[in-house]
Design a protein around this nucleic acid. Structure first.
Lengths: 242, 242
DNA sequence: TGAGTAAGGTCAACGCTGTTGGCATAAGGT
DNA sequence: ACCTTATGCCAACAGCGTTGACCTTACTCA
């Protein structure tokens, strides 16, 4: 078997599989995303990937070191899709808001993949480009470097954290997702006011909001805070923080 | 095999296993937490759980419907540990801050378990009690119910989202965690200023902050926003939002 | 005190999984 | 046209969650 994976750029021989498919890293990643979509979070298996690809399962190991390596490639693909087609306005707040919402949207479009990848550092092209862009937007505000880094970190972690949390609910196996939702109607909505007065009083409102993400609100709050820091920096010169 | 799991309260016969262990749901949950700690996120297996418990693997199915049911029990245990020993001050902001940080801390103490459970709704005792407490704190501020629910949701989701994200990094298999960390030093810190000026300029600051959680900052921002809403509610009567 | 019941522990088996070593084949540089 | 070797394929391994049947023994009730 393969001692080493040949990098995509150095591949010369493109030998089709028995079923006539010419395999590439990109094709594997796209197939993996589709399988996660169709079969759920646990539905990405090497054997099924081979089947869907029209190749032997072990072929994967000619293109990735293993499942974890494939996972990092998927992570980078998600970031790439989030940033692709972006239209920067030059207004930092508008641009940051759009990036945050784009990340959230792109991840929720592939919830099973999002769960697998949100906490990973791929170090691949799309991730690096995204970070460079983000840091550029923040630096353009004139913030001192330590503040840029602080806000950058909060922004990225918040976007990824909410994306992962919201995706995790969507990505649950159907049985578990239905069970979790049933808890709201069967358990929370039925608690008696004597023992749980607060839940009982708010149950209808809680159930109604249940499926909405809190990310847009949290994002706006972060941008407010950033704006305050930027005002402070522009006014006070080298005063950095309170 | 068992057609149905007997609820813990109704258990009468406590028959020890061949190795003399008297099994309970609580014992299984504690053992599962310990195994996750010792063997990593993928280290909780039914067979290993049986071994650690001193019982046949299939014994689990006498106490839980399956791995997913056990997962929900673990989720509730984490919430219970987060809230246990809390000392309410009666000051809403202080109390909310403490609850948020306690959740974050309790989850990070068991990162592998946190990843499995952060997005689940257990509907069990500790979770319900925690929600009742939180809603009580928020209602004590005099906020109108819709604002209570809105802030409650943002607060809980943000706490769980950051807990899950931060836990996910800690819970990675050692090889993956080391690889992700190496990316920062080997990839980001080495990018040339010509192609990636922003990353190159900030690399030392980025690497230094790499291991710190952004949650405390985000939490304080959420509390700021809540405080503003409360002020507005107390002043304006029935004016709810901007 | 003794008998009957069924809770609960154990065993063996099923069809999955990721991964690997060895082998066959054909692509592409010369 | 040849030769090298990249690349696809096959078979096998250990370990996974789960299940059905079986057996043992704690508890109930007379």
């Amino acid at each position: 078997m393969a001692k080493k994976v040949v990098p995509e750029e150095e591949r010369r021989r493109r030998r089709p599989t028995r079923q006539g498919v010419v395999v590439t890293q990109q094709l594997i990643v796209e197939t993996a995303l589709r399988m996660l979509h169709e079969h759920g979070r646990d539905g990405l298996t090497v054997r099924r990937l081979g089947l869907a690809l029209g190749a032997d399962p072990s072929t994967l190991y000619r293109y990735f070191r293993g499942i974890d390596d494939l996972t990092l490639a998927i992570a980078d693909e998600l970031i790439g899709r989030a940033m692709r087609g972006r239209r920067p306005t030059g207004q930092w707040r508008t641009d940051l808001r759009e990036i945050g919402l784009r990340i959230h949207t792109a991840y929720l479009a592939h919830p099973e993949a999002a769960v697998l990848t949100a906490s990973r550092v791929s170090g691949r092209a799309n991730e690096i480009a995204g970070d460079e862009t983000l840091l550029g937007v923040l630096r353009s505000t004139g913030l001192p470097d330590p503040d840029v880094v602080r806000i950058y970190q909060a922004f990225v972690d918040q976007a990824l954290a909410f994306a992962a949390l919201d995706a995790a609910s969507l990505a649950l196996p159907e049985a578990a997702r239905a069970a979790d939702e049933r808890v709201w109607h069967a358990t929370y909505a039925e608690l008696p006011a004597e023992t749980h007065p607060n839940i009982a009083a708010l149950a209808p409102l809680l159930v109604a909001r249940m499926n909405d993400s809190a990310y847009p609100t949290a994002l706006e709050m972060l941008l407010d805070s950033a704006e305050a820091s930027i005002r402070r920096a522009r006014r006070g010169g080298d005063r950095a923080d309170t």
